[in-house]
Amino acid sequence: MQFLEKTKKSIFSLFILILLILSFFVFKFALDKEKVYSPKITDEQIFTDFEVEDLIDGRKINFSKVLFGKNFYLINIWSSWCEPCKDESDKLLELKKETSIMMVGINYKDKKKNALNFLKLYGDPFDQIFIDKQGTISINFGAYGVPETFLINDHNKVLKKYIGPLNDEDVFEIKKITNN
């Protein structure tokens, strides 16, 4: 009886000890983890069944019809008031020139005049541009800021997502994926 009590106690102590040490290592690894959350890419297709308005001619079209007939699409969310968007404009121009990706711009919470000015100043890399006055269209893609860029294949699946301005490595990666 005494013996049983003792083994029970030592098993319990051992359990606590293991729990403590396990917690220690979990916390230790947690220290090195990225603390700012950013959504991962899911396997699902993106939602495309909603109406968008063209920036240039104000024509309204269902977005699923925009993503049609090409192998790859690049959706770039931008705005004239967004400073980093200026930095990434030549990256987008480069992609436009050197790949066959269809470039779709989403003009986020902007004024038409400013947006057109921006394109005049920094070049227009887009095949089509739609406006997102309320910011709700970006939410359909699962975006949460500007700039944000999505590489999508012909099955409407997101292959890559870039939060913040594109850099040279990103451009290289996009080229590599789309040239295969």
Binding site: K109, G135, T136, S138, I139, Y144, G145
Partner: peptide, 25 residues
């Protein structure tokens, strides 16, 4: 997602404002 300690309801960020409109619609 912009100010990661707050709820959408509390936040006044661009993203939160859009999200409120999105949910209404």
């Amino acid at each position: 997602l912009i100010c990661q300690g707050q709820t959408i309801h509390e936040s006044n960020s661009d993203f939160a404002e859009s999200m409120k409109k999105y949910i209404k619609s």
